[in-house]
Design a protein around this nucleic acid. Sequence first.
RNA 1: GGUCGCAUAGCUCAGCUGGAUAGAGCACCUGCCUUCUAAGCAGGCGGUCCUAGGUUCGAAUCCUAGUGCGAUCACCA
Length: 591
Amino acid sequence: MTLQETLELHVKAGIKALFQSELESVEFQATRKEFAGDITVVVFPMLRVVKGNPAVIGEQVGQYLLDQVELVKGFNVVKGFLNIEISDSYYLEFFQSIKDKTNYGYVDQKDDKAVMVEYSSPNTNKPLHLGHVRNVLLGYSVAEILKASGKKVYKTQIINDRGIHICKSMLAYQKFGNNETPTQEFKGDKLVGNYYVKFDQEYKAEIADLIASGKTEEEAKKNAPILLEAQEMLRNWEAGDNDVVALWKKMNQWVYDGFEVTYKNIGVDFDTYYYESDTYLLGKEFVAEGLKTGVFFKKEDGSVWCDLTEDGLDEKIVLRSDGTAVYMTQDIGTAIQRIKDYPDVGGMVYTVGNEQDYHFKVLFLILKKLGFDWAKNLFHLSYGMVDLPSGKMKSREGTVVDADDLIKEMADTAEDISKDLGKLDDYDEAEKQELYKTIGLGALKYYILKVDPKKRILFDPKESIDFQGNTGPFIQYTYARIQSILRKADSNSYQFDTKDVMLHDKEKQLIKQLELFPEIIQNAAEQHSPALIANYTYDLVKEFNSFYQNVSILGADTEIEKSFRVELSKLVSQTIKNAFQVLGIQVPERM
RNA sequence: GGUCGCAUAGCUCAGCUGGAUAGAGCACCUGCCUUCUAAGCAGGCGGUCCUAGGUUCGAAUCCUAGUGCGAUCACCA
């Protein structure tokens, strides 16, 4: 039972004994630091049941608690706030109970139903950029948070491997590629991306020519020869033309190989992959099924629609008049395919930008109408765009921040700062490079994950990302500092009895902060919000640094105090590690 | 135009299901390295919580209307 639950019972009992009234619930909050006390009961809500002056009621309840409850050491009432002082022994015993848990904050798997978390889901015609980085970090972290909260999780993505945009880079490669192939230095996704840009350049040039020869802009855009060729190629692909399919497979594989390098660099992984080229047919089957059961209807031209006007939305097309699949068709197929493949999945999380809010609203509704009971457990993890000072990123125009470049730059910055500080002179070069990457990535990941997913991020490459204050490196630094103490302390030999410890105020604050962690994990899981974890960790670390600067750990007056402080520091570092683990951020032993 | 999201210090952001005098970091200004890592600590400066109403003992938080920014409303994905 938590402290709050214990106190709640006693407050209720007190109200009953003092006023013969039943209290539904008790409102608690942390005591503000300018007042004495550890936890505060808000008296105002009790006035609904108990009539009287809140200050007087607070006084009476406080006295009752002091008399009846062992762990209550004192109290004071300010206006309608009853501040309760808790005895040190409570915190010490609590600390004793968690100090050796290396998985502190995590819950063992307690749910039979699994959650499938989709993220990344790139097109296969260009490299990953900053926008994908936000997606990937969010999705990965939410998956890890869900795991830590006791859920079974499958990480997956849907690869958008078919369509006209793929044909564009294929065509440009055919025309201008000279059988170029990817190399170690020049990854396949970059190569294919270049041809996607090349296509766009040619297309624009042809449009200009056509306009010059007297065509309207609209005609020119529709009839540019290279576009017609691309459309031809798409038809050939759908018809299964051997050469086109072979080229498609080859180029897609280049891209996949390139992506894998980037994912590995970022430090994310997937349990299973889905390809739209595999799932759109299943989607079509279920559209036919829904047509029979009346979920969908057919218009005169043969296109198939879902009427959502009763739900406050519009009609939505699910199949074109020529019978080909649209985006929605594929997504219906993909969702159903996943449940077929993994029957233990009871819900899914889609990590996709907020420009698709409407699409997912519709998708979830359609799946419900099709009668799938798991459809009620679908969640669109929607996040805001990452914008540059110059505006939106556009792959075709080359105004993107490339994911690989970005990671490299972050590591370089970490290297510059590290060299200035010069603390690592005895590390060999490989160790140093590894560390720079850990710190650089830590900075990037924390920067992105600490903000509410719903908010847009304005990313200024020139301003770059901070390494001080509320940042990843600040937290990593604190971790490394604790490790340094632990190395010197040889903590295995330390023994102490909590009864012998006099709790310093900074120590108590730290234990209080540690106490919150399991609940933070659960909240973060419910709200799909890594930001909660990031901000919690920052608060914990700030609290520790204050302790560290004000209290000597290895130089404590007594062996008991020293042992206790070492153990406390150890648990703080373990908690930092556990928190950062679910954010996908590594912690260094030194820095 | 309909719908959805966002709006808090010069900048970047916290602020949980309403609770005490709205909190951090960056930037700027003071102090603190011969004792555990100064990527740190202690302190200062800085706010009409977009506006106007409403609900309430109490509103940055809830409701309504409006303003600004963004997204979306395709036989694109």
